[in-house]
Design a binder for these strands. Structure first.
Lengths: 145, 145
DNA sequence: AGTGATATTGAAATTCATTTTCATTGTCAA
DNA sequence: TTGACAATGAAAATGAATTTCAATATCACT
């Protein structure tokens, strides 16, 4: 399997773009961090290493990361886009605590199959889906009781 | 079953709010329209009947409609909140054409059950969920071929 | 009806994430 | 080198949604 960096470089090449210093720094920072984060969070991390990189460039590069398949962008209904690693990572959906915001990754083969079937029943070619379950996590429901 | 208007009036009463002229107009306009719409769309419809109602009031009332259970708010990844009737309407998720934006309502008991089970497996008390399937609709895939 | 406490409203200003503009700088092939 | 174009930072712009604030409206209670 190609490395994530390799994939990104090829993506740039295929689109007539080059791997600039800024993009390299941003991608590295992106790859170093697992989990979910916002563009702002990535920007502030990048800023520590390279204070000269502007946030517009972080936003622009994040978009490239998504297009290249390295990142996945989604939002959990909080008005902010969250990003996470995509390349080499299994697909999953999210279970979010409505109270504390804790996020758990979930997958269910049965659901995935039914989603495909549902799309097909309607004549659609399924390209992607988004599923978020909201609930109260054990910690919060315990605390409330 | 109580009428939607009744539910809204009770909701207002329970929260020490009153049914003002503006709220009445907005709720009626809301109830007259099936399907999905944005706050802006509702505002422009309301404006025709009552040009003196401000958009802030539409936004505020829409929020009350959601809280009272009359409306459901969700977004299909386009950066705008969509609203639809909720009270007296069966739960459903959406299948959206990534090309033309056509929206189809879908439901699947198997998925609903698995979602509840998934939440439970993680100790969560499921409160709500959001599922959107993106694909290419028959018309668009035919046109593209 | 009158009164005061409080809720509501419209208009305009504000917020906040994200995008765009634009003038400058970097890149690279010929 | 030169020219064509890509990339960048800073600041301005965008756009949905929210908040502010001064001006009403509303309601419970005399």
């Amino acid at each position: 399997m190609k490395s994530a960096r390799q994939v990104f470089i090829e993506f740039l090449g295929d689109n007539g773009m080059s791997l600039t210093h800024q993009r390299r720094v941003i991608v590295e920072s992106f790859l170093e961090n697992e989990g979910h984060f916002t563009a702002e969070q990535l920007y502030s991390r990048v800023s520590k290493q390279a204070p000269d990189i502007g946030q517009a460039t972080v936003y622009r590069t994040l978009k490239l990361l998504v297009e290249s398949g390295l990142a996945d962008a989604f939002d959990l209904g909080e008005g902010v886009t969250l990003y996470e690693h995509h390349y080499g990572h299994a697909h999953h959906d999210h279970l979010v605590c409505a109270q504390c915001g804790r996020k758990v990754e979930i997958v269910d083969e049965t659901i995935e199959r039914r989603q495909a079937a549902l799309a097909e029943e309607n004549g659609f070619t399924l390209t992607r889906h988004r599923m978020v379950l909201f609930g109260i996590c054990p910690a919060c429901s315990g605390a409330a009781a």
